[in-house]
């Protein structure tokens, strides 16, 4: 029922973009940016504004702001989410957007989608107590609750396909070269 399924995703536009960018792959090269300013202690303020894509600079109407800090038990003032929680937010929102897009493409009506995420971490790593313990998460668990007009297997396939096409899932599960320079 293509005309009755509405998850708020413009699939025609996405497919059109896919077709156009297959013909003109240069336009598919995007650069995403963020800026960060140290405020005090572990507190920093980041902004997200323009990005590059479709062959040119792209502007937004809004500047998005993000406060990051650490909680009180780290002797910080808890003025924002911790950076690792931003990673969870990024993963959750990327997978969830993907589920909506895939569901629309597969003509599945979503009624509700909620996710809870947990990232386990042994902070002996970041505190330098035990060099055998890594700094980052030892694993991330994502739990979805999805109410949709589809079978259980079709819903599982949505979530699986969303992982397959997710940028943040890829960033988290595969290594990425990171270059940090000081100017």
């Amino acid at each position: 029922m293509a005309d009755t399924v509405d998850n708020g995703v413009n699939v025609e536009a996405l497919l059109g973009a896919r077709e156009a960018l297959t013909e003109a792959p240069e336009g598919a090269k995007f650069t995403w940016r963020a800026s960060c300013k140290w405020e005090n202690g572990t507190y920093s303020h980041s902004t997200v504004e323009g990005f590059f894509g479709l062959g040119e600079e792209q502007e937004r109407t809004t500047v998005f702001n993000f406060d990051a800090d650490h909680p009180l038990c780290f002797a910080s003032e808890d003025r924002g989410a911790t950076p690792v929680e931003y990673v969870l937010v990024g993963l959750a929102s990327c997978l969830t957007a993907g589920i909506a897009a895939v569901a629309q493409h597969r003509e599945i009506q979503l009624n509700s989608v909620t996710a809870t995420l947990e990232g386990g971490m042994d902070i002996q790593g970041i505190l330098g107590i035990d060099s055998d313990v890594r700094n980052g998460f030892d694993g991330i668990k994502v739990s979805y609750k999805i109410d949709a007009d589809a079978s259980e297997d079709d819903i599982k396939a949505l979530v699986a396909q969303s992982q397959k096409r997710s940028a943040v899932y890829d960033i988290v599960t595969n290594p990425t070269n990171v270059t940090v320079e000081v100017n």
Partner: peptide
């Protein structure tokens, strides 16, 4: 999936569980 090599160490994707889940779903279809 074998995704990279750094300092003589192989790096492998953390997406194994999803690869197997997808494959099971496709087979069941």
């Amino acid at each position: 999936r074998f995704s990279g090599i750094q300092d003589g160490k192989g790096q492998f994707s953390g997406a194994l569980l999803n690869q197997c889940a997808m494959s099971d779903l496709k087979m069941n279809r």
